[in-house]
Design a protein around this nucleic acid. Sequence first.
DNA 1: TCCATGACGAGAT
DNA 2: GATCTCGCCATGG
Length: 123
Amino acid sequence: MARKQVREGAVQERDFFQDVMDVVRLVPKGRVTTYGAIARYLGAARSARIIGYCMNSSHAVRPPVPAHRVVNRNGVLTGKHHFPDNAPMQKLLEAEGVHVVKDQVERFHELLWDPMVELDFQE
DNA sequence: TCCATGACGAGAT
DNA sequence: GATCTCGCCATGG
């Protein structure tokens, strides 16, 4: 993140990328969250795309980011294609007890971990 | 510096 | 209710 073009209404501190990584790491094992939920939590409600785009670079981030716990609003593993063959997104999820059928998380609504709710957003 | 792109979401048709 | 279109804005070329 060479440039920090922080704008009003968006991120107010740190890099957007860092914030995204931070929130994703907070997702408990066995739970999943959505790009939109993260976006809203960061104050960029309509910037869900950026969350996904940032995830593109998450592979080189340390500590590792549990990107497999992030799916789209339908509970679909849209980013599975970005995972290495030795650690498929679905495999990682099922290893945590999350059942995936046809690239879709079962019981999605129950497993959904919304930072706005779980972290008791109060700002 | 400007342009195109993208692991999305919500409203419109 | 299924599909299409547009908006959003950080990254990379």
